[in-house]
Design a protein around this nucleic acid. Structure first.
Length: 525
RNA sequence: GCUCCGAUAGUGUAGCACGGCCAAUCAUGCAGGACUCUCACUCCUGCGACUGGGGUUCGAAUCCCCAUCGGAGCACCA
């Protein structure tokens, strides 16, 4: 059969090749004009996120579920942006849920709850609902009881290592097969605080012989006798749910339709599916993404950062060297740029390592039209203009947008960057941007004479054009991921508090404070 | 040890469910050029990839198998 079809196809293909695309289009027009439009509309690349598998008329409910044990970082931002973007696209509900059920190892930080909500709003992902797991512990207990009664959960008194032995051998531990009644009794004792930490744990029965060891009887609750940092919870509970249990119950209770999360939680779905099946629930549709690593930031963990901050290594959670959202914000990275960055990144399952350059490029396009231009001279040195007439110049605030001018008074000296000064020698000609032209007459001390104002001669003689600062400028400190720059800037930058400006030939900065020295946070080049 | 994922230019990404419209999209990066009184912006040009090997097929980035590399889970962490 295939042998017979072969030559026929060859011939058809040859015929296709004989005529030009235009001829074929004409032929199509003749026999099926209604298809012409399809020909022209095909193959436009999809921008943005891929379509979600949404049923006809369905409202989507999606969530971002952090543990508030530190502030949101660029890593967590992906979850905020992508989930909220889908909700915007399809209409529905975006929920932020704090999975704060570990008062000990990943102890939540009280301030961080607000930080998350704050940063979500800043990112344009205002949550429709805020849920805090530590407020809902009784509900988890109810479901636990139900599962015990069904014979689907049991209190296990094995030591961690012992249980692992049973599990690896695909054998049930001695506690697996006791009656629901007895388990209920143990469970009540657990809740009453009669057992010590680590002495008992509630497990969900799955399939102890499952070929994937990750799926064999997983833990659902453990005993932690440490008060919760939230004052309204404090020492109310000594039995805490583990993520697989808490997440499973909440995703159903909150009516989640779709879940997008890291692929490290792929096995979670398989474990949680046992709970869903026992309770007769339908699991939400899930998608996973891989790890994102930024080239510029090495490995960092929230707890390591926390320690470094306490040790004074960083100035705080918004230190410009940190990958936190608060730092990005302070540096003048706009939320729109961050959203776009993550949306264009998509939701692939591969682990990726991406450079901040991509985010910076996005941000630069947004701020370039709105950032006023100023001179900032880092590492300044004085240059004396021996024959200068005092004058006032008015460089424009923006090279293309018409937004008025600055005003700078100049007498007989200005500051220039030492790195520009180093390139000079006696006889060098240069242009002070928006001011006038000079010829160097002495290196030590650095002196020059006025050789005209004409920009034409600058072009003709290909003089270097450098920026400068007046003697009555203000001290400026720029804090950047690569350290601190100090120098002199125009007085007028003090009117730009909280705005993003461009220091010419240096880069964009957000003006952070103007009382005393001007402090600016470096955005990017 | 057992199990589960993934692999397209330097970096990301589209295409893969349904094999031919793919000598492979877009962005960023890099190189060159135009514009510009900034090393910014804008515009133009160029560079650059289907991990390897088998198989199925007239035809494979796309389907199957193996290998390699990378990631993850097997917690009384999230």
């Amino acid at each position: 059969m295939a042998k017979e079809v072969g030559p026929v196809i060859q011939e058809i293909l040859a015929e296709v090749a004989r005529k030009t695309p235009e001829e074929w289009q004409a032929r199509l027009e003749a026999i099926a004009p209604e298809l012409i439009e399809e020909l022209n509309t095909k193959k436009e690349p999809d921008k943005g996120l891929k379509a979600l598998d949404v049923e006809e008329g369905q409202q989507v409910v999606m969530r971002f579920a952090p543990n508030p044990n530190g502030p949101p970082t660029l890593g967590s931002t992906r979850g905020i942006v992508v989930n909220s973007e889908y909700v915007k696209k399809y209409g529905g509900k975006f929920i932020i849920r704090f999975d704060d059920t570990d008062p000990q190892t990943k102890r939540p930080m009280l301030e961080a709850y607000d930080w998350y909500v704050d940063d979500c709003k800043w990112l344009g992902a205002d949550p429709d609902e805020i849920v805090i797991a530590s407020d809902r512990i009784p509900m988890y207990y109810d479901y636990a009881r139900k599962l015990i009664e069904m014979g689907k959960a049991y209190v296990c008194f094995c030591d961690g290592a012992d249980f692992k032995k049973f599990k690896d051998a695909k054998e049930a531990c001695p506690h697996r097969d006791v009656s629901p009644e007895e388990n209920l009794m143990h469970w009540d004792k657990m809740l009453a605080g009669e057992y010590e930490e680590k002495s008992a744990v509630l497990r969900i029965k799955t399939d102890i012989t499952h070929k994937d060891p990750a799926l064999r009887d997983f833990g659902a609750f453990r005993i932690v006798k440490v008060p919760h940092p939230r004052p309204e919870v404090d020492d109310k509970y000594c039995v805490w749910p583990l993520l697989d249990f808490e997440g499973a119950i909440e995703d159903h209770e909150l009516g989640m339709t779709h879940i997008i999360r890291g692929k490290d939680l792929m096995d979670s779905e398989k474990r949680q599916t046992y709970i869903y099946n026992y309770l007769g629930w339908k699991y939400p549709k899930t998608t996973h993404w891989g790890r994102v690593k930024m080239h510029e930031f090495g490995k960092f963990s929230t707890s390591a950062l926390r320690k470094a901050i306490e040790d004074g290594e960083y100035s705080g959670w918004d230190d410009p060297r940190l990958p936190t959202l608060r730092a990005m914000r302070r540096r003048g990275i706009l939320p729109e740029a961050i959203r776009k960055f993550f949306i264009e990144m998509g939701v692939g399952e591969t682990d990726i390592s991406i450079s901040m350059d991509t985010l910076y490029a996005e941000n630069r396009k947004l701020i370039d039209p709105v950032a006023n231009r100023y001179f900032f001279v880092w590492d300044p040195v004085e240059i004396e203009i021996t024959d200068a007439e005092p004058c006032t110049v008015n460089p424009s605030l923006h090279p293309t947008e018409d937004r008025g001018c600055r005003e700078i008074d100049v007498a007989d000296k200005v500051y220039i960057c030492s790195e520009d000064a180093e390139k000079l020698q006696v006889g060098s000609k240069l242009r002070l941007k928006d001011l006038f032209n000079l010829e160097v007459i002495s290196m030590e001390p650095l002196q020059a004479k006025h050789i005209g104002d004409s920009i034409e001669s600058v072009k003709k003689e290909k003089m270097r054009i450098i920026h400068w600062a007046p003697m009555d400028g203000v001290p400026v400190r720029v804090l950047s991921p690569d350290g601190e720059f100090t120098g002199i800037g125009e007085k007028q930058v003090t009117t730009e508090l909280d705005k993003i400006v461009q220091f010419e030939r240096f880069g964009f900065c957000r003006i952070d404070s103007v009382d005393g020295d001007v402090v600016a946070y470096y955005t990017h080049k």
